[in-house]
Every structure is written in structure tokens, then in C-alpha cells.
Measured scan of single mutants.
Amino acid sequence: KRVEVKPYVLDDQMCDECQGARCGGKFAPFFCANVTCLQYYCEFCWANIHSRAGREFHKPLVK
């Protein structure tokens, strides 16, 4: 058996893009583990950032 640990998915993290400004101060539910991102995102910022060319295939890690 093999266990994969993702220590970078933490609870209670603010969106790295808007710092809570676009999501009413809620914590960010998404983390993008792609090396070009490596950031936490609220729903609004995830949709906005990941609609751009080259990022549309990134998969979010959801808390």
C-alpha cells in the first residue's frame, strides 16, 4: 500500500488571490496543486483564474 500525504491542504486559509474580498471573508475551499499555481482560491477566483488559457485543466483539491 501507498499513502499520499498532501500537507499543503490546510484548513482555514484565505483566498490567495482576493484575501476574502470577493467571497465575503469566507475561507478558500480550493487549492490548486499545479506547480504554476500552488495557491488557495475561493470559488469566484478559482473560476476566474482557471478559465484562462493553460489553466483550464487544473484540478482543485477541495477541503
Rank of each mutant, 00 (worst) to 15 (best):
K1D: 12
K1T: 11
K1A: 04
R2H: 04
R2M: 11
V3M: 09
V3T: 15
V3Q: 15
V3I: 10
V3P: 11
V3F: 06
V3Y: 04
E4P: 07
E4R: 03
V5C: 10
V5R: 12
V5H: 10
K6V: 08
K6Q: 09
P7H: 09
P7K: 13
P7E: 13
P7Q: 09
Y8K: 15
Y8P: 14
Y8H: 11
Y8E: 15
Y8I: 11
Y8T: 11
V9M: 13
V9H: 13
V9L: 10
V9Q: 14
L10N: 12
L10Y: 06
D11V: 10
D11P: 07
D11Q: 11
D11Y: 08
D11A: 08
D11I: 13
D12P: 08
D12M: 06
D12L: 05
Q13S: 07
Q13N: 08
Q13E: 04
M14N: 14
M14E: 10
C15P: 03
C15N: 02
D16K: 13
D16W: 11
E17S: 10
E17H: 12
E17Y: 07
E17Q: 14
C18W: 00
C18K: 01
C18E: 01
Q19G: 11
Q19C: 06
Q19T: 10
G20S: 04
G20L: 00
G20P: 01
G20R: 02
G20Y: 02
A21C: 03
R22F: 04
R22G: 04
C23D: 13
C23R: 06
C23A: 07
G24M: 05
G24P: 06
G25W: 10
G25T: 09
G25N: 11
G25A: 07
G25L: 06
K26Q: 08
K26G: 09
K26W: 03
K26D: 07
F27C: 13
F27G: 10
F27H: 09
A28C: 01
F30Y: 12
F30Q: 12
F30C: 04
F31Q: 03
F31K: 04
F31S: 02
F31G: 01
F31N: 02
F31Y: 13
F31C: 02
C32W: 00
C32A: 00
C32R: 01
C32F: 00
C32N: 01
A33E: 14
A33F: 04
A33K: 07
N34W: 06
N34R: 06
V35W: 05
V35T: 13
V35Q: 12
V35N: 15
T36V: 08
T36L: 08
T36A: 12
C37V: 00
C37Q: 00
L38E: 14
L38V: 09
L38H: 13
L38P: 01
L38T: 10
Q39W: 01
Q39Y: 04
Q39L: 07
Q39T: 12
Y40E: 01
Y40R: 08
Y40C: 03
Y40D: 03
Y40I: 02
Y40N: 13
Y41E: 01
Y41N: 00
Y41V: 02
Y41Q: 03
C42R: 00
C42H: 01
C42L: 00
C42D: 02
C42F: 01
C42S: 00
E43P: 06
E43H: 09
E43A: 05
E43I: 02
E43R: 08
E43Q: 08
F44N: 10
F44I: 11
F44D: 08
F44V: 13
F44R: 11
C45D: 01
C45Q: 00
C45I: 00
C45S: 00
C45Y: 00
W46D: 01
W46L: 04
W46I: 03
A47M: 12
A47S: 10
A47W: 08
A47R: 11
A47E: 12
N48Y: 08
N48S: 13
N48D: 12
N48P: 07
N48T: 13
N48L: 12
N48F: 10
N48I: 11
N48H: 13
I49M: 06
I49L: 11
I49V: 12
I49S: 11
I49R: 12
I49T: 07
H50D: 03
H50G: 02
S51N: 14
S51H: 10
S51Y: 07
S51K: 15
S51W: 05
S51R: 15
S51V: 11
S51G: 13
R52T: 14
R52Q: 15
R52G: 12
R52A: 12
R52F: 10
A53V: 12
A53I: 09
A53M: 10
G54T: 08
G54I: 07
R55P: 03
R55N: 11
R55T: 07
R55A: 11
R55Q: 10
R55I: 15
R55V: 09
E56Q: 06
E56S: 08
E56K: 13
E56W: 02
F57K: 15
F57E: 15
F57G: 15
K59R: 13
K59H: 06
K59V: 06
K59W: 03
K59M: 08
K59T: 11
K59D: 08
P60Q: 13
P60H: 06
L61V: 14
L61H: 10
V62A: 06
K63S: 11
K63G: 14
K63R: 08
K63C: 00
K63A: 15
K63D: 02
K63W: 03
K63H: 11
K63N: 09
